[in-house]
């Protein structure tokens, strides 16, 4: 048995790939649910109800999807150029803390129309800086950015946990390590009253369309893709590889930092070290499920958010641990990788 590269990929198969992968992941998780002694279809129904059953749960699912769209885009734009940014989690936190710091110390009192863009920009710039450092190491010394971005996550999170326990600590928080808050006027407006859903969702979706436009219609998008497909060929064809990668890193790190910034301004107003339940890492799953397509990222982020929010409700009624959501999401990453492989190759005896 061996694998043979397909000469052309049927378009229907490529579009169906994520669906096949998700179904396969749900099937394997279904076995785990069955082994736990719970009815499988009822469990999945409860997940859907938990995610969409009421106005509150729908807004909660969309609130959860917002940072996932942005970290998913961060991974997607970087991976497309074969820039392995595994550091979205750290960039998320650095973006969040930059927003909280600037908001609490510098821009307080400014008109919201000026203040909010400044705070969002501060978060994006912080994320950019954290990715430009490993990129510089790669371009200058050929240091593998997988290891550096991955380990910088810990540097960033420990740095944030130091700040929220010392200089940026909120004295009004009863001794809990949390940062000073951004003033209410500078928070993102709510989309729906009495819910956590904020206009960050619209910003994230708009950015997904913008990224799609940039990738498919601009020189930079073409160069970034070429840099990923064949760096040496790209250089030969006149693509300025270093400059392209710097722009890709600014976009990717900026998106991850923006995700942290929007989470602060939209949901909490301040930073704690549990602000992100692994949004940076889930973003990688989202990007792969979307096959690195910016618009697919929106749908993949929605799927991931549905699993996480829905599993909470399902767990309460059926007693299946909520970790089943993490298992399903991880399995869908693995099955997506395998499914993409089989759109490119076929088995020959």
């Amino acid at each position: 048995m061996r694998f043979e590269r397909r000469e052309h990929r049927p378009a229907a198969l490529v579009i169906a790939t994520p669906l096949i992968a998700v179904v396969a992941a749900l099937a394997v998780s279904g076995i785990l649910i069955a082994l736990a002694g719970a009815p499988v279809f009822e469990a999945y129904w409860k997940i859907l109800v938990g995610a969409f059953g009421s106005k509150l749960s729908i807004t909660e699912t969309l609130t959860r999807a917002t940072p996932l769209i942005l970290t998913g885009l961060a991974a997607a734009v970087a991976f497309r150029a074969k820039l392995w940014n595994i550091g979205a989690e750290g960039q998320f936190y650095l973006g969040a803390i930059a927003t909280a710091a600037v908001g609490a110390r510098i821009t307080e009192g400014m008109a919201p129309i000026i203040q909010i863009p400044i705070l969002l920009a501060a978060g994006a710039v912080a994320g950019m800086v954290l990715l430009l450092l490993p990129l510089w190491l790669r371009l200058k010394f050929s240091v593998d950015e997988v290891v550096t971005t991955l380990l910088l996550n810990f540097v960033a999170i420990l740095f944030v946990s130091m700040l929220v326990d010392t200089v940026l600590k909120d004295p009004m928080a009863f001794g809990w390590p949390q940062s000073e808050a951004v003033e209410r006027a500078a928070r993102l407006p709510k989309l729906i009253d009495r819910s956590r859903l904020h206009i960050g969702l619209l910003i994230a979706v708009a950015i997904a369309f913008a990224v799609h436009f940039v990738q498919s219609r601009t020189t930079f998008g073409m160069r970034a893709r070429a840099a990923g497909l064949n760096p040496r060929g790209a250089v030969f064809a006149g693509v300025p590889l270093a400059r392209t990668l710097v722009l890709v890193a600014m976009l990717s790190g900026g998106l991850a930092g923006l995700a942290g910034s929007i989470e602060v301004l939209g949901v909490k107003g301040y930073v704690t070290t549990d602000l992100s339940p692994g949004y940076g890492y889930s973003g990688i799953v989202v990007a792969m499920l979307a096959n690195l397509h910016p618009l697919g990222v929106v749908l993949a982020a929605l799927f991931t958010a549905v699993m996480f929010v829905g599993a909470d409700g399902m767990s309460r009624s059926l007693g299946i641990p909520t970790y089943i959501a993490d298992v399903t999401v991880a399995l869908s990453l693995i099955s997506m990788l395998v499914a993409v492989f089989f759109t490119q190759y076929r088995v020959r005896r």
Partner: peptide, 14 residues
């Protein structure tokens, strides 16, 4: 890289 992360996410959540 991606497979390894997938294995990490799967093994720890499992």
């Amino acid at each position: 890289h991606v497979s390894g992360l997938g294995v990490t996410l799967f093994a720890s959540s499992f």
